[in-house]
Amino acid sequence: MVWLPLDTWIVVIGALCAMACALPGCFLVLRKMSMMGDAISHAVLPGLAIAFLVTGSRASFGMFIGAAIVGVITAVFTQWISSFGKVDRGASMGIVFTTLFALGLLLIVQAADHVDLDPGCVLYGAIELTPLDTTMTIGRLAIPRAAVVLATVLLINMAIIISFFKELQISAFDPALATTMGINATLMHYLLMSMVAVTTVASFEAVGSIIVIAMLIAPAATAYLLTDRLSVMLVISAVAAILSSALGHLSALTVPRLFGFESTNTSGMMAGATGLLFGFAWILAPRYGLLSRWFHRKNLLAEDPTVTGE
């Protein structure tokens, strides 16, 4: 195995992307809206396609705007269908995102002649190629465009979460309470949705629109098993994000060789690594892990209930 500067960049970009996703992801998991992340990341496709059609390039600011709008539209339509039509929330989400995805696919097919846009790239990205596209240089160091974009999004996400920490926390815990306290829970909801949408767009080039869901949910769910405090959860999820990026790239370099293959898709491996970390937490978490629960259950039965019950 040879480690090149390129590999470092891949890990850095992966880590930036995973961290940028994990932060809003924590709120998605806490608000029991993880599937909204799934829905939005599928549904931004038409937003991207329209932005491509209009601007003709992949790296435009308009793309973020388009994605944020479609993200909010997904949330709004889901809300409408489930409240006006009295349709189960999951089902209305499914209807909205599959329809938007289908529209996006139709648009992309129409645009394929004009713009170099491969649906495959949108779905699972090409993180291996991102370090080659550099825009900025600091000293003698050429920084890839993806790293700049993802770092910016990460900073924005951090800034939003730090400045609206209480508001987001209360809206996640109890939207009704938040409203009575003068916090606009609906606004917070859509703020979160736009954050998810923008992050998804920033990440899709690196990891694709489906693997980004792993980045949104898995580190947050891992952290959720390890702590009871929101601030700690945010930190742990960021750490899990970095770990899974490094672990993912390492295994992308080593695992295929074990089976006699040449190489593989790095972002897929990163998603696998987030799952692996979750698996560890699932079994080993100090309080909520399978092992600790099992021990506790045994202890509970071993105690004499009549003594402890009084």
Partner: peptide, 15 residues
């Protein structure tokens, strides 16, 4: 007889 039920870690019915 001797029914004990626990939710998560908290016993709900003792003995």
């Amino acid at each position: 007889d001797d029914l004990t039920v626990a939710y998560h870690r908290k016993p709900v019915l003792w003995d």
